[in-house]
């Protein structure tokens, strides 16, 4: 991979420009679907059928709104943290088979998870603590409590299909290998229960990872205003919202490629493959939006119990069943 390819992949496709555009589109889809489920219209006026509303909101926050701070705020630290979170998500997308250039190696799944899941959330926490306030502290403490269960659940949920699909190959835990072989796990009756368990686990884990209902207690607005985001305003809030949306996109793409097989049984080069990829992505987003709108908010203790029961336990059981399948 030469410098031009790296620049193109980082800045254009599947990097910064593509991911930002997809983040805005995904936010629009989530808002429109949520509105339909709640018998509202949703975004309507900016652009055709309101599709440019997220872009307008972002630019308004970034360019027009003022930044409100206190004498204890460390604005530059918060800005750098959020930008680092965004750039880690952009870098993680390079490891997905969506990338037209060649980046991949055995065990690259571990690098991907580190960049796509650990960095962004740590950066959100650092940014929140850089703009201190009583509600921020409560929000961050709740966020950390949820993370202790949701991150292991999300990791195990993704690890099991990747490990099963790439176990007997020369490229263990390689994303592209796993993505091309994972569809076979859905067809094999012995691994089908494992995949069902993994899917249940990931549906729960993605809700908590993205702090969507019923796991949105870190930002319970009636109680702690906006939780960890309370002190964000103007350009900082624009970055925080973009980081959340990009996190949604990368998490959904990870599920699409590592659990649902990406464009398989077709290839990226075929129209059917691209259409199937889009459909799978929309299915993941629709399921997350549906769960978001169906459930109310759990208390922190209820959220942790639900995460343990329906997020972590299915993933652990899937891991045990997968190990039994591989070795016996």
């Amino acid at each position: 991979m030469d410098v031009f390819q790296l620049l193109f992949a980082s800045l254009v496709f599947p990097g910064l420009i593509f991911l930002t555009a997809l983040s805005f589109l995904t936010q629009y889809i989530v808002r429109k679907l949520s509105a339909r489920m709640q018998r509202r219209m949703g975004p309507k006026y900016v652009g055709p059928v309101g599709i440019l509303q997220p872009v307008y909101d972002f630019l308004k926050l970034l360019r027009a709104k003022e930044l409100v701070k206190t004498r204890y705020s460390m604005v530059r630290a918060a800005e750098i943290s959020l930008l680092l979170g965004l750039s880690s998500l952009v870098a993680s997308a390079l490891l997905l088979p969506l990338n037209v250039f060649n980046i991949g190696s055995p065990y690259d799944f571990l690098v991907f998870f580190y960049m796509a899941s650990i960095w962004p959330i740590i950066m959100i926490i650092v940014a929140s603590l850089s703009m201190p306030g009583p509600y921020t502290s409560v929000g961050v403490s709740r966020l950390l409590s949820i993370l202790t269960v949701s991150e292991p659940a999300f990791f195990t949920g993704l690890l099991v299909p990747v490990a099963l699909a790439s176990f007997d190959t020369k490229t263990p835990l390689m994303i592209s290998t796993a993505s091309s072989k994972v569809l076979g796990l859905w067809i094999n009756p012995l691994t089908l229960p494992v995949m069902v368990l993994v899917t249940i686990s990931l549906i729960v884990a993605i809700q908590s990872k993205l702090m969507l209902p019923p796991f949105n207690i870190p930002e319970a607005e009636q109680e702690i205003i906006a939780g960890y985001e309370t002190e964000f305003s103007g350009p900082l809030l624009a970055l925080a919202i973009l980081l959340h949306d990009m996190d949604t996109v990368v998490s959904a793409l990870a599920i699409v490629y590592l659990v649902l097989g990406g464009p398989a049984p077709f290839t990226h080069a075929s129209v059917e493959g691209v259409l199937l990829l889009v459909v799978k992505y929309l299915v993941v987003i629709t399921v997350a939006t549906y769960v978001k709108n169906v459930f109310g908010r759990y208390r922190i203790d209820q959220a942790l119990m639900a995460l343990l029961k329906y997020g972590l336990m299915p993933a652990v059981v899937a891991g045990i069943l997968g190990t039994v399948y591989l070795y016996f």
């Binding site: 360019r63 027009a64 003022e66 206190t70």
Partner: peptide, 11 residues
Amino acid sequence: LKSRVTRETQI
């Protein structure tokens, strides 16, 4: 691109 307008308030 960012707005340079800031306002300082009491915590």
